[in-house]
Design a protein around this nucleic acid. Structure first.
Length: 370
DNA sequence: CACTCGTGGAA
DNA sequence: TTTCCAAGAGT
């Protein structure tokens, strides 16, 4: 009872550590990726890339990274910027707390560190939005310090290397120890980058290219022919589906009403068209009128259907049913949001919107305003 | 510690 | 088309 799996059996034998380092370096020298953030040693630029790359593919990040450094070339520029400008540049990248934390952290570095990026693990871990993996990525890439990492790529590579018999989530301590154990103290910058490249280009989730892998002769999963079955995954529960009624409210000046979501929580700090969840037995127009009265304190007339948008978030799906509406009486109040504003369709592009709402804006541009 | 937090690439 | 999941962190 309670006997835990003996993870020591899954460690890497000390005699294998040096061959792992040597073979990975040789492979990386030939096959390593040439990525924009590897052309600099500026800790600011490397930090930006590490944050953007959290849960986000390299291909998606590259254009955002280029635009970011053009718009916010230094820590000082970022610290002095408006949060709305920061979020606007982040629009579409998701996990918007990353952008809010970057902005806050830049201000902290300016005030607490005189604008000089900290170079110790403790100090970097104090920055909002920086956890163990990001800290290791920054310190190894920018300062060549031997600090381990454990991102999705490394979890998969090490789970296969050691034929980990439980899902990685259940063995994080073990995986961190292995990452630290194999890390080459003579070559930390290249090693960590090589480890991630191995996961991203060879040790793929499905159909790993073991015939091109420098570690195949050491890989317990490969030697046991388990490489396509590892790492183990945990079953997922089906996503709940929410029906949302959304209002595009027009006033007599041809403006529409938008609101800014609270800083905390989903899509914090972004703007949106107001609306809310459809209750049982309620029609969409009834829902929209009720939500607008509850959240903005105004009376509207619900008109024609504009567009229906289906969107999937991480933990649920939504269907936004959007109607044109006409403002009748009352001054909009920010009851359930941080701010409300009347804007023209020309000005609306200045505001950061979530992707599902951007589709609504696109639809508005393609039809005659009410 | 389980849950929250976005979006799009790739199969 | 659906499904997985990507250089994870905060609470």
């Amino acid at each position: 009872m309670g006997a835990k799996i003996d993870l020591r059996m899954k460690s890497v034998p000390p005699s294998v550590v040096q061959p792992l380092r040597t073979s990975l370096k040789i492979w990386y020298d030939q096959w390593g990726r040439d990525l924009p953030w590897r052309q600099t040693l500026d800790p600011y630029a490397i930090w930006i890339s590490e944050i953007m790359l959290q849960q986000t593919q390299v291909k998606t990040v590259i254009p955002y990274y280029q635009r970011w450094l053009k718009r916010f070339p230094t820590l000082e520029v970022l610290a002095a910027a408006d949060q709305q400008q920061v979020l606007k540049l982040w629009q579409g990248l998701g996990y918007y707390a990353r952008a809010r934390n970057l902005h806050r952290a830049a201000q902290i570095i300016v005030t607490e560190w005189g604008g000089r990026f900290p170079d110790t693990l403790d100090a970097v871990l104090q920055l909002p939005g920086v956890g163990k993996t990001t800290a290791g990525g920054i310190l190894s890439a920018a300062f060549d310090q031997p600090v381990p990492i454990l991102d999705g790529n490394v979890k998969r590579v090490l789970a296969r290397l050691t034929a980990l018999s439980v899902p990685p989530k259940r063995a994080l301590l073990h995986l961190w120890l292995v990452s630290e154990q194999v890390l080459d103290p003579e070559y930390p910058r290249g090693f960590n980058q090589a480890l991630m490249d191995l996961g991203a280009t060879i040790c793929l989730p499905k159909q790993p290219s073991c015939d091109r892998c420098p570690w195949s002769e050491f890989c317990q999963a490969y030697l046991l022919n388990l490489q396509t079955k590892l790492p183990m995954s945990e079953p997922r529960s089906p996503l709940p589906h929410k029906q949302i009624g959304v209002a595009v409210i027009w006033n007599d000046q041809g403006q529409v009403l938008i609101d800014r979501r609270p800083q905390k929580g989903l899509l914090g700090g972004l703007w949106e068209f107001p609306g809310g969840k459809v209750e049982a037995g309620e029609t969409i127009p009834d829902c929209i009128a009720r939500e607008i009265k509850e959240e903005l304190g105004i009376e509207i007339e619900v008109g024609d259907h504009l567009i229906t948008v289906d969107h999937a978030y991480t933990h649920f799906k939504v269907t936004l049913t959007v109607h044109h509406c006409r403002h009748l009486v009352g001054e909009p109040q920010p009851i359930a949001c941080d701010e409300v504003r009347w804007v023209t369709l020309d000005d609306i592009e200045m505001y950061p919107f979530p992707s599902a709402n951007q589709q609504i804006i696109d639809a508005l541009r393609h039809q005659t305003p009410q």
